[in-house]
Design a protein around this nucleic acid. Sequence first.
DNA 1: TTGAAAGCGCTAACAT
DNA 2: ATGTTAGCGCTTTCAA
Lengths: 361, 361
Amino acid sequence: MSDGGGPPTIVSIAERAGVSIASVSRVLNGVGARPDTVRKVERAAAELGYVPNAVAQSLKGGRTKQLTFAMQDIGNPVYVAMVREIQAVARAAGYRLLLHSTDAVIEDELAVVRSLGDRTSDGLILCPIRITPEHIEVLSQAAGPVVVIGSLPGDVQVDAVQADSVAGARLAVQHLAETGRRRIALINGPLDTVPGHNRRQGYLKALADLGLPHHPDAERATEFGLAAGRTAAHQLLDEHPDLDAFFCANDQLALGASQAVHERGLRIPEDIAVAGMDDSDLAQAAWPPLTSVDLGSVERGRLAARMLLDRLGGADLEATRARRTTAVPRLVVRGSTDPAAPAAPATAHGTGTGSGTGASA
Amino acid sequence: MSDGGGPPTIVSIAERAGVSIASVSRVLNGVGARPDTVRKVERAAAELGYVPNAVAQSLKGGRTKQLTFAMQDIGNPVYVAMVREIQAVARAAGYRLLLHSTDAVIEDELAVVRSLGDRTSDGLILCPIRITPEHIEVLSQAAGPVVVIGSLPGDVQVDAVQADSVAGARLAVQHLAETGRRRIALINGPLDTVPGHNRRQGYLKALADLGLPHHPDAERATEFGLAAGRTAAHQLLDEHPDLDAFFCANDQLALGASQAVHERGLRIPEDIAVAGMDDSDLAQAAWPPLTSVDLGSVERGRLAARMLLDRLGGADLEATRARRTTAVPRLVVRGSTDPAAPAAPATAHGTGTGSGTGASA
DNA sequence: TTGAAAGCGCTAACAT
DNA sequence: ATGTTAGCGCTTTCAA
């Protein structure tokens, strides 16, 4: 009497419809079959509430229709923006998204790449914090296609999408100078990270271009976080009361710095201007809204996902050489540097975050 | 000459080691074998760079070691907190996490539940925006274990973890009253969502408890977003210049409202106090830092993940009746209601977001 | 058009 | 202790 224990399979359907499993498979996959057969099979499938076993399909087909995105911590707004976009692109192409937080542990990052060999996902998008020689080695012998979001040496044969932090930082510093600031401090994250290093380079270059002096003691580099930004700003203001701007290597540092400024009863931007980087959701929610450099998190996510899907899709592209793309940075001026900046976003451009409920209950 | 085309399998290893595939499997799974055999197999596996095919293991074992988390939009800070926690718990138990954004489309939510039948993941954590009769039906005949984060009718046999928005909202309103506010407006999201409805109930109850009058026109309910909060606050202040507090149904609304207050040259909290809900990362990054009610996003994530893993693990628990848990809300007082509140977090409690780099380049 | 059968890579009886 | 073999659920030749 049917219902042989577990969930329905093509066998149960075949029995019920009185045909072979091959016919069931054909009908289910829209391959030719006699109308009569089609009807019988579809009916049986519906009655049994059949859902194809994706695992079996994967084993047979050799692809799981899953992509993996690995970054250090999904709590960072930059990654959130990427995940959203990657998930959207993946989904549109019929892929599911597997999330992997590496907690910035190198060994874990390497493990993710190696785990491509377990065939759990068809491809990987990796956001490494640093690139070590081991990364290069593991990446070049990965068991499946990988797209790196970050900077890779030119000769490594792996697709990559990168931000242009150097140019981005210059945009921000130039803007500060153009709006009359002369004593611009840098609040940075660790210098031994790629973003930390590059953003500092941009800062230095901009100062040089602008003919502004560089005061090594007007720089702080600790962690990329709110508390670090606040502490650094307090220290800098203690030592250099005449500073007129903080350029911060990311938005969290910038908001921490802003808190310090407020705590001292100084005004933003009148007394001190503050600019951040990443243009995360935090920037527009702040007061005053934070001027920031959009390094294209969303765009990088989209590009990375597309590149990966390209590798998976076109058989001809398979052997193509590694591709490199760079997202162009864009300065977003808001009230933290320009008192006249409109409070509401000038253009609609998909605010991000936005309008969900507070979730449940 | 080994290397039979594709990636190494137990067959390649067996050939290379000169043993049967069964022995290979045993060694690889740590089942008894002669030291000699163990050595040969391990050596061959290492030389070939063997990685077990997880898909094949899943097909055989009937479980994928994958969990799915479905919510409307990963851009919402509340969900970010949950994902982080769920991922951590899942990972510790050897599970991977599949992310699914439903974009608040009901049909999509239902589809996720049904798709449990495809055996792609072993269990599902679902955050529905609303619960429709269809949800109930689909949920009760799900092909695998589901834990709902949200409110479910008591008789539905599905595990659920819920927040206590009503109590949470009361906490906030009581706090506002205790600190001297009497004319407390409500800025809310859609009333036909569970959070929108419940948070309003808490607001009304608190007013009643406190003997404060309820002015229906001191309420606004539009969307759960920054822009909506700003607009609503401006309208309310236009109509009721004497308001002394905004209670907002989530942090984003609260930050939007704060912007409006600032734009009008009013001071927070001296002229007007602002309180939000969810205690997302936005709250502590704001200026002044935002008083908010922690509805236990992290805790709910953790509990949901644990419940799900329980269902998957213990064979004996399998038939247990549905369990319900409610996270206890907690008021977090900051500068937006209390001028004396410390700027830095009083206790360490895992700041959340925090310290990642700005990601790449 | 349809059915029988092979096989994706693995685990677990079962037999030796 | 080790080898042989039967599937897990599906797709896809290959014959009929």
